[in-house]
Amino acid sequence: MIALQETKEINTASIIDSVKSDYCGAIDVFIGTVRDNLVGKKVTKLFFEAYETMAVSELQKIADTVKEKFKADKVSIVHAVGDCEVGEIAVVIAVSTPHRKASFEACEYAIDTLKETVPIWKREYFEDGSHWVFSHP
């Protein structure tokens, strides 16, 4: 399952179900959630904007690479779009592999690559303003 969804629509249990595989003994799941602070500043919410068609195709590329590189059977990645309140889910990555080590490594590879290649932008809101994350050096 590769998808962009409103955070309230993201169903972690069904994403985990989507990678179950009879020949895999491991499922690893990474869940990114909205934390309430940035270097001591209180974050009130996030807003995610995506170049949706390209974001889906870049997520699919990550899933394809994970299958090849880590011998994963199934890979699901669901990223939030729109508003995300503190504690809500920004991203879920689930990977099934025959043995556990590969599934841990695959999740780490997937989230690290997502941050580099998937056209999604995060705006952080504070009590006194907001900014697009990483925009300026």
């Binding site: 990223h79 932008w121 990483f134």
Partner: peptide, 29 residues
């Protein structure tokens, strides 16, 4: 830039038919 939904490498020749997007620093996850 992205050209037709792919990260551009600088060499793509652009015509009016292409879908072009400006890609500022990404911050998903």
């Amino acid at each position: 830039l992205a050209v037709n939904g792919e990260h551009a490498n600088g060499t793509e020749v652009i015509s009016d038919k292409d879908e072009v997007a400006l890609i500022p620093p990404m911050s998903g996850g």
